[in-house]
Amino acid sequence: MNTVIFRTAAPALAALMLVFSVFVLLRGHNEPGGGFIGGLMGASALAIYGIATGVRETRKAIRVHPITFAGLGVVLAAVSGFISLPFEVPFLTGLWWIFDVDGSEIALSTPLIFDIGVYAVVVGAVGAMALALEGDEGED
């Protein structure tokens, strides 16, 4: 795996994959995509970066531990449900706020928050697992 081509290409490839994973996440509500597969792409970007540059470099590059990401995702998912409370609708009801910015429609919603949460959970959990399996200081 330690070829020059791979090592040179991997950072660019990982960056591209991360951007694309966010794209997939955001188009997810009405078209194929969403938090889960976006998250898997994000996690594979981490895994590729880890294979190319080593696990320690990857951990340094993402700054926080991937599991922290997963925790953030769970919190976001729970919060997207709590938002229903003041609106007198049941837990996890989809609420939409559609803004018109410069002629294009921007739809913000609680499902979006939930999806971002799923994305973070998947990136965090799968990323952590991938980094652990790629050989590391024995952290599970």
Partner: peptide, 13 residues
């Protein structure tokens, strides 16, 4: 359920 989930996420962070 929701509080336990929320708390678990928070504590992981």
């Amino acid at each position: 359920v929701a509080l336990a989930l929320f708390g678990a996420g928070l504590l992981v962070m």
